[in-house]
């Protein structure tokens, strides 16, 4: 590689790869052996990548309250290790000793409801009822009724959803939806965007329907921006949801007019 420009590009490519995904030992060695001070370049690429990575995020997507409590416990442990009563292993979706009042309260609520969706719901955020009312009051929101499919798991479900394209927020309402066993299956919303490949709809979030619930309201949590929603569909998936649905159990759909 005698062309200095070409050599330059090769080094830049290595720095970019280091910034975006990391290098193999050989690549790292090649970069270090080049004698080029890469740190400033690396940081600029990392900053550009981080800035692009922030685009299209939902600015109002709140942190789940149970997770917030765990972060506070972690912080307390990190900055006051001498005061930690036992252990140093961070809590992972389970309360630890420190900050236990708040965590235990959250866990009790979650256990009582037996519903992962409830665990994810932040107490500081507006309730689904309030969000639905707010969105319904907006002229730029759309409201669509669900249509049950012939899938035997669909049952006699009805209801609607409200979606606001400008704020990328929405709430689903289900009446008569069958309770799911979160250990075996969870419901997952998919949003088909007219400006994306329909084989890969946007994940709208995983949720549960608890026993005895006649009407369930579930906030929509789209993980990517939805430019022009053309269909909403709920499938039954393995716990935690999937990245790409096999669409074996499509239960309800809602199509904007």
């Amino acid at each position: 590689m005698n062309d200095p420009m070409q050599a330059n590009e090769a080094m830049i490519d290595l720095i970019i790869k280091k910034a975006l995904e990391g290098l193999s030992a050989e690549e790292e060695s090649a970069l270090n052996g080049s004698g080029i001070p890469v740190q400033a370049e690396l940081q600029r690429f990392e900053m550009a990548a981080a800035a692009v990575g922030m685009t299209g995020l939902h600015p109002a997507q709140p942190l789940p309250e149970t997770l917030r409590q765990r972060l506070l416990q972690d912080a307390e442990r990190h900055f006051a290790p001498a005061r930690a009563p036992v252990g140093t292993i961070a809590a992972r979706r389970a309360p630890a000793m420190m900050g236990w009042w708040a965590a235990a309260a959250c866990l009790l609520v979650a256990l009582f409801i037996g519903n992962r969706a409830a665990q994810m719901r932040p107490t500081a955020a507006p309730s689904p009822q309030a969000m639905r009312a707010e969105l319904l009051a907006r002229a730029d929101s759309i409201r669509i009724t669900w249509t049950a499919t012939a899938d035997p798991n669909a049952g006699a479900v009805s209801g609607d959803l409200v979606w606001n394209p400008a704020t990328q927020r929405g709430v689903m309402r289900f009446v008569g939806m069958t309770r799911n066993d979160p250990v075996a299956h969870q419901y997952q919303l998919w949003i088909f965007d007219a400006e994306r490949d329909e084989r890969y709809p946007v994940d709208g979030g995983v949720f549960d329907v608890p026993a005895g619930a006649t009407e369930v309201l579930v906030p929509i949590r789209a993980v990517l921006p939805v430019r022009r929603a053309k269909l909403f569909a709920v499938t039954l998936e393995k716990p935690g949801g999937v990245v790409v649905s096999r669409r074996e159990h499509i239960l309800v759909t809602a199509q904007p007019g």
Binding site: Q61, L63, P64, L67, L71, M120, G240
Partner: peptide
């Protein structure tokens, strides 16, 4: 810091994690 940047971190974690549980661990 958690209150100010938690939603940003959570949004990034949700985007680059397969499940909500993975995203929670990543956020921690």
């Amino acid at each position: 810091c958690i209150d100010e940047f938690g939603p940003l971190v959570w949004g990034l974690a949700r985007r680059l994690s397969r499940t909500a549980a993975d995203a929670e661990d990543a956020t921690q």
